[in-house]
Simulated assay, not measured.
Amino acid sequence: MPRVRALPSIPSLCLRLLLLLTVLLGTVGAPAHATAAPFRVLALYNGTWDAAHISFVKEANEWFPKQAAANGFTYTASNNWDVLAGDGVNAYQVVLFLDDLPQTAAQRTGFERYMRSGGAWMGFHVSAFTTNASGWSWYHDQFLGSGDFTSNTWGPTTAVLRVEDRTHPATRSLPATFTSSVSEWYSWSDDLRRNPDIRILASIDPSSFPLGTDPDQTWYSGYYPVLWTNTKYRMLYANFGHNAMDYATDTPLSSTFASATQNRFVLDGLKWLGGATGAGRAVPAGSAGGRSHDADGR
């Protein structure tokens, strides 16, 4: 006589069905790549001096919101630098300095506290400018490591940038060299190569020389870092953000976001700073933005 298999009890059967349903739903609904929680970006700007910087601020405040919508972060632009002096800055995972730096003692103390407490920062071009580094030594000598401004190229031009470190999340997807967007380029009193805390990510490639259109403000040789990070902090500095201008008519002649490869650095760097996954992927097609598109990566 054949043996009769005992049927599972009703509670046991329900539990098995529940577990099976959970597995099926998890398999179907799970994304291919899990992402971190959205992060919040605060961009601080001055927007009142030098038409080339004002032009950059205007286009940055158009470009970044589009990237935020496409890449899972929020973007808030403000010219109220006093937010650094209070607790308001703590609501943001990343702070950008577009065209200036903190001026008051309270703003400077608040920013240093924010960074020492684990905040993240990306600065552009003139945010590092000073001829009095000792006036805020922590920022210029320690945090940035650059010291005083010493010279600049003129007029604004593209440059071939050599990526020196392709292991960092901000540069991992970049080619060995690429053509930047137009900018005015700075040199510094301190040699960043001698600073053990500084990790240089990209510099002017020698193929760029001579760099500049004014013979009195042209670089013919030398070593000039452009992108770097300080390994003691979550930060990135980029020495671009100055558009070419027709100053007589206040008309921009270039766009900082004209190079898709340079844009990739900005977006991947921002994702790394904000703690999101996906750094190292290419910027979506059509995101280069700006008026001119003659400076794509190569």
Score class of each variant (00 low, 15 high):
residue 235 M to G: 03
residue 222 G to Q: 11
residue 246 D to Q: 10
residue 250 D to W: 13
residue 176 A to R: 13
residue 205 D to H: 15
residue 252 P to H: 04
residue 231 T to C: 02
residue 217 Q to K: 14
residue 257 F to R: 01
residue 252 P to E: 06
residue 229 T to Y: 05
residue 230 N to K: 10
residue 193 R to A: 14
residue 237 Y to A: 10
residue 202 A to F: 01
residue 198 I to C: 13
residue 201 L to V: 06
residue 247 Y to E: 10
residue 248 A to W: 01
residue 196 P to C: 12
residue 175 P to A: 09
residue 260 A to E: 12
residue 199 R to C: 01
residue 214 D to F: 08
residue 184 E to F: 07
residue 215 P to R: 10
residue 183 S to R: 02
residue 233 Y to R: 02
residue 202 A to L: 04
residue 238 A to D: 14
residue 259 S to D: 04
residue 200 I to T: 09
residue 192 L to E: 02
residue 228 W to H: 11
residue 187 S to M: 01
residue 202 A to K: 06
residue 189 S to V: 03
residue 261 T to A: 15
residue 239 N to Q: 12
residue 257 F to Y: 15
residue 177 T to D: 09
residue 179 T to W: 00
residue 226 V to P: 02
residue 258 A to Y: 02
residue 181 S to C: 11
residue 185 W to T: 02
residue 177 T to F: 03
residue 212 G to N: 08
residue 233 Y to A: 09
residue 177 T to N: 14
residue 227 L to G: 00
residue 199 R to W: 04
residue 245 M to V: 07
residue 202 A to Q: 06
residue 255 S to F: 08
residue 246 D to K: 08
residue 233 Y to L: 09
residue 256 T to D: 08
residue 203 S to D: 12
residue 206 P to Y: 01
residue 229 T to E: 11
residue 258 A to L: 02
residue 233 Y to W: 08
residue 199 R to Y: 06
residue 235 M to T: 11
residue 221 S to T: 14
residue 222 G to F: 08
residue 192 L to W: 06
residue 234 R to A: 11
residue 267 L to S: 05
residue 244 A to Q: 14
residue 176 A to C: 00
residue 265 F to R: 00
residue 181 S to P: 07
residue 220 Y to Q: 13
residue 260 A to G: 14
residue 228 W to L: 11
residue 263 N to T: 04
residue 253 L to I: 00
residue 218 T to H: 09
residue 188 W to T: 02
residue 188 W to F: 15
residue 208 S to C: 06
residue 185 W to G: 02
residue 260 A to M: 07
residue 240 F to P: 00
residue 195 N to H: 13
residue 210 P to E: 05
residue 231 T to M: 09
residue 176 A to T: 14
residue 232 K to T: 00
residue 201 L to K: 08
residue 225 P to Q: 07
residue 232 K to I: 00
residue 202 A to P: 10
residue 179 T to P: 03
residue 225 P to S: 09
residue 244 A to S: 14
residue 196 P to R: 09
residue 260 A to C: 14
residue 267 L to D: 07
residue 244 A to R: 14
residue 215 P to Q: 04
residue 216 D to T: 15
residue 258 A to V: 01
residue 252 P to A: 10
residue 245 M to N: 05
residue 263 N to H: 10
residue 210 P to S: 10
residue 231 T to E: 05
residue 232 K to D: 13
residue 189 S to G: 12
residue 184 E to D: 04
residue 233 Y to V: 12
residue 186 Y to F: 15
residue 269 G to S: 12
residue 254 S to M: 06
residue 229 T to S: 15
residue 210 P to N: 10
residue 201 L to D: 04
residue 202 A to C: 03
residue 201 L to N: 04
residue 239 N to P: 05
residue 208 S to N: 03
residue 262 Q to C: 05
residue 196 P to D: 11
residue 216 D to H: 12
residue 182 V to T: 15
residue 217 Q to D: 11
residue 211 L to E: 04
residue 264 R to L: 01
residue 240 F to A: 09
residue 259 S to G: 04
residue 214 D to L: 08
residue 243 N to W: 00
residue 208 S to V: 03
residue 256 T to K: 00
residue 203 S to T: 15
residue 190 D to N: 15
residue 199 R to K: 11
residue 264 R to I: 00
residue 221 S to D: 14
residue 244 A to C: 01
residue 269 G to T: 08
residue 245 M to W: 08
residue 208 S to K: 03
residue 267 L to T: 13
residue 225 P to I: 06
residue 246 D to I: 05
residue 192 L to I: 10
residue 268 D to P: 01
residue 247 Y to C: 01
residue 264 R to C: 10
residue 226 V to N: 02
residue 226 V to D: 02
residue 204 I to W: 06
residue 192 L to H: 05
residue 263 N to G: 13
